[in-house]
Amino acid sequence: MDPVGAAPLLCTPFRTSSVGPSMKPAAFDYHAPATLDQALDLLRNHGEEARILAGGQSLVPTMAFRMARPSVLVDINRISALAYTKAEGNSLRIGALARHAWFETPVAAGPVGALLAQVAHSIAHAPIRQRGTFCGSLAHADPASEWCATVLALGGTLLLAGPDGRREIAAADWFQGVFTTAIEPGEMLAEVRLPLLDPGWRCGFAEFSRRAGDFALTMAVVAIRIEDGGMREVRIALGGIGGRPELASRAAALLIGQPPSAAIAREAAACAAADCDPQDDIHAPADYRRDLVRSMVRRALTQAFAA
């Protein structure tokens, strides 16, 4: 037996070769532009083959499963000009590189900053929140995304940068279905704007998931303006029950003119549950989700009334 031949087996398996055993994502070309214009040029040049990589906390897992196989990744993490949240006038501007964790302490005074802080703590887990981005969640449009339901409830606006300049789109027109939005080829979601509601508004958020950090089975986000003891404007958004977040308009309308009370919260919650159309899936039967809608809407309203 040749002792020299046996020696490598005793060594730490140190591989200098760059070809390792595991390569879960399909191959791609990687670009890390320093400016938004460079990123847009790359999107234009590579067409629909290219994907924006922001936090990557949803995109990279889908690439690991090869459900997504972009041949070009445009990594925007080096575009420091996109890393901001700014309260300007009546709106909160959220740049494409604002991470979830930034919102854990209020980024603005008033009800919106407080709501965002509450919601942020429910997003996945701490390490995911360090990396994942607010705008990335909106672009990914997972039906169970907390930020998607929140932006819909607050009536936010999305700012898209594209080959023909910029355009704005209302949150209500953005979500089209599971992982599907109104984005056009060559466009990138550059900023989300939320109205900084005045202190006359109260907000509430409730979600249910089986384990901490899981995708929620159902969530409700509410924003209510109360004046002279009665509700004047009400928005109720639901997430996790269908292909996209949706507004419970009839339940919201039912509250207009009413003073906050436990009874009216129950009534609106029952209305939202009756109107929604959840599907059976492996996580929960439709009836269970419908019951969760009732509970989550009631909890979110109760919270807002007490705020």
Partner: peptide, 25 residues
């Protein structure tokens, strides 16, 4: 480009203390 940081640490830097479990976060 497709090499994850986990694989880079383990395969290129020889630092196998970082463990790879589910590989999807």
């Amino acid at each position: 480009a497709r090499r994850t940081l986990a694989e880079t640490l383990r395969e290129n830097c020889g630092l196998t203390g970082t463990h790879v479990g589910c590989e999807h976060g």
